[in-house]
C-alpha cells in the first residue's frame, strides 16, 4: 500500500501542476475577444433562452433579451455575467479531466457528460437566482456571491471524482493496484 500511496503522491503533484497550467491557459483563451464574441456570448444567450423556456413552462412572466433573463411585469432581471454562465466551472472540470491520466476515450466522455452536469446545475442556479432576486435582495446576494459559487464547485468535484472512479486504468497506464496492497 505504501508504494501505491507514493505513486499517488507523485501523481497528485503532477496532476496539480498540469491542472493549474491548463486552467490558466484555458482561462486566458476564454478571455480572448474572438472567443468571447463567437463562443461565450452566444453560449450565454443560449443559456438565458433555455432558462426562459424552462421558466415559462410554469410561469408566463419571463423573457430573455441576449444574456438578460427578466420579468416584464415587474421589470426585475438578472444578467448572466462571467462566472454565472458555467463556462469557468466547465474550464475547471475540463482542466481536471485532461490533467488526470486516463485514455482519451475516457476523457472525451468525461468532458461531454461533465459539461452537461455542470451546465444542468447552472441552469438551476440561474433560475433560482431569478426568483430569489424578486423575493429578497439579501437572500439573492448571499446565494449569488457565496452559496452557488461553492455548490457549483462541489458539483464539479463530485463529477470529477465519479469520473476518476470509473476510469478503467485506475491511476493511469502502468499504474495498477500493487499486489501487496
Amino acid at each position: 500500500m505504501h508504494s501505491f500511496l507514493a505513486v499517488l503522491r507523485f501523481g497528485v503533484i503532477r496532476f496539480f501542476l498540469i491542472f493549474l497550467g491548463l486552467q490558466v491557459l484555458l482561462f486566458g483563451v476564454e478571455l480572448l475577444q474572438p472567443v468571447q464574441q463567437h463562443l461565450v456570448l452566444p453560449w450565454t444567450a443560449l443559456l438565458a433562452a433555455t432558462c426562459v423556456k424552462l421558466v415559462t413552462l410554469f410561469d408566463a412572466n419571463a423573457a430573455a433579451a441576449g444574456k438578460l433573463l427578466w420579468n416584464p411585469s415587474t421589470g426585475f432581471g438578472v444578467s448572466i455575467e462571467p462566472g454565472c454562465n458555467g463556462v469557468e466551472a466547465s474550464i475547471i472540470l475540463f482542466a481536471a479531466i485532461i490533467a488526470f491520466p486516463a485514455t482519451w476515450r475516457h476523457k472525451l466522455w468525461g468532458l461531454v457528460l461533465g459539461f452537461v452536469a455542470v451546465q444542468g446545475l447552472n441552469v438551476v442556479r440561474v433560475i433560482s437566482l431569478f426568483y430569489l432576486g424578486q423575493w429578497n435582495d439579501a437572500a439573492f446576494r448571499v446565494f449569488h456571491e457565496y452559496l452557488w459559487q461553492g455548490l457549483i464547485m462541489v458539483d464539479v468535484l463530485v463529477v470529477w471524482l465519479l469520473w476518476v472512479r470509473l476510469n478503467p486504468e485506475g491511476l493511469g497506464r502502468g499504474r495498477s493496484l500493487p499486489a501487496s496492497a
Binding site: 501505491f4 500511496l5 499517488l8 503522491r9 497528485v12 496539480f16 491542472f19 486552467q23 482561462f27 469557468e88 474550464i91 475547471i92 459559487q149 461553492g150 457549483i152 464547485m153 464539479v156 468535484l157 471524482l161 476518476v164 472512479r165 470509473l166 476510469n167 485506475g170 491511476l171 493496484l177 496492497a181
Partner: peptide, 26 residues
C-alpha cells in the same frame, strides 16, 4: 477561479487517502 479552486486543491492534497479510496474502489 481562486475562491473555489484553492479550497478544492487544498482539500484534495489533505485528503489523498480519501482520493486513494475512490481510485481503489473504482
Amino acid at each position: 477561479l481562486l475562491p473555489t479552486v484553492a479550497p478544492a486543491l487544498i482539500w484534495l492534497w489533505f485528503e489523498r487517502p480519501f482520493f486513494a479510496a475512490v481510485v481503489v474502489e473504482g
